[in-house]
Design a protein around this nucleic acid. Structure first.
Lengths: 221, 221
DNA sequence: ACCTGAACACCGTTCAAGT
DNA sequence: ACCTGAACACCGTTCAAGT
């Protein structure tokens, strides 16, 4: 009671963890694209320059924030299931989490496969080796899944106006752009294109990756 | 001869095409991350606000620039080859082009599958249908490839310091981050992880996509 | 119709100084 | 050792005005 509660934060030493927490909170409230060093500092009741003691620059802060975001998305399923379902679940969860705020897409190229996210790597590899994959295959599978998730998020973000929200009976804006210069071939292709722009992009690539993995497994056995 | 050559540009009406050309030139010279409305305008000898007549905002300009960049990367092979090789070639070319400047990764989420890039779509679909795929399968295959390319670019960008340039005999920085908290399992996984961080990421996902497509084709026949 | 100029409300990052 | 304050060199975008 001797210390005022509003100074409690200030007397606590600033740590990487505190900064990342504040950044993730701000991202949730106002979107990743609104993150700025100055706003995170303001939220922490500190000068912008104080953050530079813990991160070399904004990019580094964002890459740690993205890692923490993925680690906290709880992508690893609790129940045990056949590996195909299991992998599908992990990929889907990552995709859904990242799609919850499309502006994560801006920093996908900064991802750190470091300490926090490493636990996801471990769980993934251990699941796949337990059903017969080699370590090498399991690690490659993990990267293939991340790759597909990231690509799917990029596509979904770019076509976010095309997704379910768009009016039924109307062509998606991607389809309309495609038909700016229309010909007979395009008229045949357009309906298929339109269907795909409305899909969850992850359902395109992920099943293909899993099908390829299944083949790998059979050739090992 | 009556008009001075240096006013020639100014008397020409500003068009979307001119703006995109200038933007791509600047991107090539100084990186996509250095693109700004103000710099593009300066290059064109015009006020920043003049660009707003042709694009609603910076994001829209960038999405058109990315589309033009992909369209001009000449990803469609000239010679005819088996479809597996052909698809591999298209994916690789896109990947290499986008990796030539990692900062394209920032705008992958703005991609327009519109008019200019549509010619790539057409060529892709026509190649695949000519060997027996349905239109639906061909369009899905196209999106799966783009997805993989985009994901691979994200991963490569985030690990750019890990690629071939890094000293031999040293662990990649991604591997080092993974081993921040080391245990027996991680010591087994780390060598495989290290190998993969040095790979061209596209060689991970793309062969899997192609292998899955091969299966699809067989089940149609 | 098309472009300009000035202004607004922000940025990331530097450097030197404080305690 | 850790944080602050002031300043620098930029941004995207607005609005009203010019021709």
């Amino acid at each position: 009671m001797a210390t005022k509660t509003n100074t409690a934060v200030k007397t606590t030493h600033l740590t990487r963890q505190l900064i990342i927490d504040a950044a993730l909170k701000l991202a949730k409230e106002a979107g990743v694209e609104n993150l700025s060093i100055r706003k995170v500092a303001l939220r922490l009741g500190v000068t912008p320059m104080a953050l530079y003691r813990h991160f070399n620059n904004k990019e580094e802060l964002l890459s740690f924030a993205l890692e923490a975001f993925i680690a906290r998305a709880n992508v690893i399923p609790e129940e045990d299931s056949p590996w195909e379902e299991w992998v599908q679940h992990v990929g889907r969860k990552m995709y859904v989490a990242l799609c919850s705020d499309y502006s994560w897409v801006r920093i996908l190229g900064y991802v750190r496969v470091g300490a926090e996210a490493a636990e996801v790597t471990d769980a993934f590899v251990s699941k796949l080796t337990s059903v017969g994959f080699t370590i090498s295959q399991a690690v490659r599978a993990y990267f293939a899944v991340i790759q597909t998730v990231f690509g799917a998020v990029c596509l979904r973000a770019s076509m976010s106006s095309d997704s379910a929200a768009s009016k039924e009976g109307q062509l998606s804006s991607t389809t309309r752009a495609y038909l700016e210069q229309a010909n007979l071939d395009r008229l045949q292709i357009a309906p298929e294109l339109d269907k795909i722009t409305r899909m969850d992009q992850i359902d395109l690539g992920l099943p293909m990756i899993i099908s390829a993995l299944k083949r790998d497994l059979q050739s090992v056995k």
